[in-house]
Amino acid sequence: MAHSSWLDAFLVEPGATIDLEALDPRDRSRFPDEESARAGIEADAKAIDDLQDRLYAEGRRSLLVVLQGTDTSGKDGTIRHVFGATGPLGVHVHPFGPPSREELAHDFLWRIHRACPARGTIGIFNRSHYEDVLVGRVRGLAPPEVIEQRYAQINDFERLLVESGTVVLKFMLNISKAEQGKRLQGRLDDPAKHWKFNEGDLADRALWDEYREAYRIMLERCSTAHAPWRVIPADRKWARNAAIAAIVRATLEAMDPRYPETTLDASSIVIR
């Protein structure tokens, strides 16, 4: 399958009405089998490394990858498998937890803008500014009228990034409640994974329906022509990784970064 065919995969069309329950978290329709999908991940990861090297050398544009999803949806695993082969010089991962006291003293996008990728680099957000319309909405961390303002503010912020040379890829990792339950139980059953378990995850799980509604609103309000959302089936880890790897590769190929031309005459230089 040509990688260009992945550019429109799992897109949320701007202005579309979203029914998250109609989107199958176990969808594997784009993959003939798990074995070929895993081989595709490996090939795409190597290609991403090469493309990132060219992006870094070019030094004119950047790529921002936003990973948003509920607990256990696989943000860390996605980063590990899709970008594990990429040289660390030009890739930066930023996990976003609750804002610090200093961050709360500024507008909600202040800490986000500081973490955006510089020209020539790939930035990966593990959670993001969308926490402020997800957790913020469900937990009532800001007045409703403030939450309402944030959707347009986010769209304007992302337009600024795009117009400044940053391509924005946004992935919602769509996991089912049943699969999340299995993964949380797996953390409890394995002592080596107890450190991953947080009782706060259960509090959020109890608000599953409220979070799904917050995600629906987020997708409908913030999937734009300049920075559309993609809803990735995340119940099958290999399918999730394969889809995102293929989309990232296709996006970088479409950007077509080039090594800069130089006037260096290498044949005239002798290394002694």
Rank of each mutant, 00 (worst) to 15 (best):
R230W: 03
R150K: 06
H194Q: 13
S164G: 10
K170W: 08
A227I: 15
R216N: 05
R187K: 11
R183M: 00
D201L: 04
H226K: 10
Y215D: 13
W208N: 04
P144V: 02
T166N: 08
L202F: 04
R183Y: 15
I154C: 07
M172T: 07
Q180T: 03
L161R: 02
L173T: 04
M218V: 03
A178K: 07
R205I: 00
R230A: 06
C222L: 05
I154V: 15
S223H: 02
Y211V: 05
S176I: 14
E179F: 14
K193N: 09
D189A: 07
K170D: 06
R216C: 01
V162W: 09
P143H: 00
G186T: 06
K196D: 13
Q185T: 15
P228A: 08
R212P: 07
R216K: 15
K177D: 01
N155M: 08
F197S: 11
L169I: 10
E148Q: 09
T166I: 11
L219T: 07
T166V: 08
N198I: 01
A203N: 14
L202A: 10
R139A: 14
T166W: 15
L173W: 12
D209I: 00
Q185V: 03
R187I: 14
Q185H: 12
L169F: 01
E148Y: 14
N198Q: 09
W195N: 08
K177A: 04
K196L: 08
D204A: 12
H226T: 05
M172A: 06
D190T: 13
G186D: 14
G186F: 11
R187D: 02
L173E: 08
K177C: 03
E163S: 14
K170C: 07
M218C: 13
P228W: 01
D201G: 10
Y215N: 05
P228T: 09
Y211F: 03
L188F: 05
Y211W: 04
